[in-house]
Design a protein around this nucleic acid. Structure first.
Length: 421
RNA sequence: GUGAGCGUAGCUCAGUCGGUAGAGCCCCGGUUUGUGGUACCGGAUGUCGCGGGUUCAAGUCCCGUCGCUCACCCCA
């Protein structure tokens, strides 16, 4: 009886892993070019961290989090997102004093117990960044620019960055009331989901996919029209700066973010090829979060990309995992010299596979062809006798008996191999 | 949590009116005892998702169940 993998948890085989690594390296390079340093955060946190940051009534915390009690009774949760941990780590390391302006990025698996579907897994990978300690519009603009640059290097097809302002503690409560009032007046025309949302997360009314709801909320009040003066100024300045940078944004007054901690600038990146899960990434400003987690009144802005969704939107150009050299021992006594030779080449950085000496040469060459090598080095009784290896250039289909001495250095061998082209 | 579609070889799938399991690809071997990709020949592989029912007979019909996929919800 085979033991299957856990629902929503998947394996990444070598060629996909290579494609993921390339994507990650590109994103990493951009993040580091913006001065962000990597922070490694644990997979588990105390459950309360997410209840406090993401919001205890959010679906993520309420029904999607993997949570359990540790043996000493500590309530543990597998992290469903990264921002809370980064802020926690930042406070725990005393960085809020030592480095009040911090640019941190992280990368790794997150866990949410949702029903899997296209581009959505229970274990998924996020690449995220947090820009802490700055509340000026320039920080927002720089962050949006960074987001756009990541989309570019990732090669996302048809990506769009949508922005909105969610207001702040000054203006959002009043707006929220206005929206709830608007919704209550039209309760009968709303879908069941929206009726529930009206009480719990009224802003969500605005992005309901139900057509009837969209019609009802077409003339609903928009946050953008209810911003207080500072929020208004901030938002305008962000848009102006980003515009000057030549980064294209789509203003979406109906866009809302699911996590409690967002305020002011919020954004979402969508791309093609993702099925119903249009979002590859998202983020926003969270000026109250650091204080909420017990730190000083410090602002921050951040975002996260879903790696698996980036993969979908970036297309599936998987790199060939080609090896360089195949060493084919044709007799048991050639196995030792073959391994010694391979080791010398490997130490110089060549990717080398050795065949099994009990396999026929034909089978070994077939394998050599399959793993994509350019050169096969043949070692049989004749070669051991003469002390010189035979090289077969797979591309040129040419044989080179006695091509190089078995005790040649890797450098010399490399030259001889290239000479067969 | 809700809904729909789909489960046959490692993969993609065919399988008629219920009649005892197939193709292509992949893999292995051979044509060539030391020379790969193309070609030709041969070979291996199935609890037809699982359990029950109907029937002389079930991959096929019925019921249940599990799994996968997509969508809702939510989100990256």
């Amino acid at each position: 009886m085979k033991i299957p993998s856990v629902k929503g948890f998947r394996d990444v085989l070598p060629n996909e892993a290579a494609a993921r690594r390339i994507l990650i390296e590109r994103a990493r390079a951009v993040l580091e070019s913006y001065g962000f340093g990597e922070i490694e955060i644990p997979l588990m946190e105390r459950g309360e961290l997410f209840a406090r940051s993401v919001g205890s009534t959010s679906d993520i915390v309420e029904k999607e989090m993997y949570a359990f009690d540790d043996r000493d009774g500590t309530q543990i949760a597998l992290r469903p997102e990264g921002t809370a941990s980064v802020v926690r780590a930042y406070l725990e390391a005393g960085l809020s004093r030592a480095m009040p302006i911090a640019r941190l990025y992280y990368l790794g698996p997150m866990f949410r117990r949702e029903r899997p579907q296209k581009g959505r897994f229970r274990q998924f990978t996020q690449i995220g960044a947090e820009f802490l300690g700055r509340d000026d519009a320039e920080a927002d603009a720089e962050t949006l620019c960074l987001v756009a640059d990541i989309c570019e290097v990732a090669g996302l097809s048809g990506y769009r960055i949508e922005v909105n302002s969610l207001g702040d503690g000054e203006c959002r409560p009043a707006y929220r009331e206005a929206l709830v009032e608007f919704g209550r007046a039209r309760l009968a025309d709303l879908c069941d989901d929206c009726k529930a949302r009206l009480e719990r997360n009224p802003l969500r009314l605005l992005d309901c996919k139900n057509e009837a709801c969209s019609a009802v909320t077409a003339d609903a009040p928009m946050m953008i029209d209810h911003l207080c003066e500072p929020c208004r100024t901030h938002h305008d300045r962000v848009l102006q700066l980003v515009g000057e940078l030549g980064v294209e944004l789509t203003h979406n007054p109906r866009m809302v973010r699911g996590l409690d901690y967002y305020c002011r600038t919020a954004f979402e990146v969508s791309a093609e090829g993702l099925g119903a899960q249009g979002a590859v990434g998202g983020g926003g400003r969270y000026d109250g979060l650091v204080a909420e987690l017990g730190g000083p009144q410090l602002p921050g802005i951040g975002f996260a990309f879903g790696l698996e969704r980036m993969q979908l939107a970036a297309g599936d150009d998987r790199p060939e995992l080609n090896l360089d050299i195949f060493v084919a021992p044709m007799a048991a006594e050639a196995a030792g010299p073959a391994m010694a030779l391979a080791r010398r080449l490997r130490r110089e950085g060549w990717k080398v596979e050795i065949g099994a000496s009990d396999k026929k040469l034909k089978a070994q060459l077939k394998r050599a062809d399959k793993v994509g090598v350019r050169y096969a080095i043949l070692l049989g009784p004749d070669e051991l006798e003469s002390g010189r290896a035979t090289v077969r250039n797979l591309g040129a289909r040419s044989d080179h008996p006695g091509c190089f001495a078995l005790d040649a250095t890797a450098e010399e061998i490399g030259r001889e191999l290239e000479g067969t082209n």
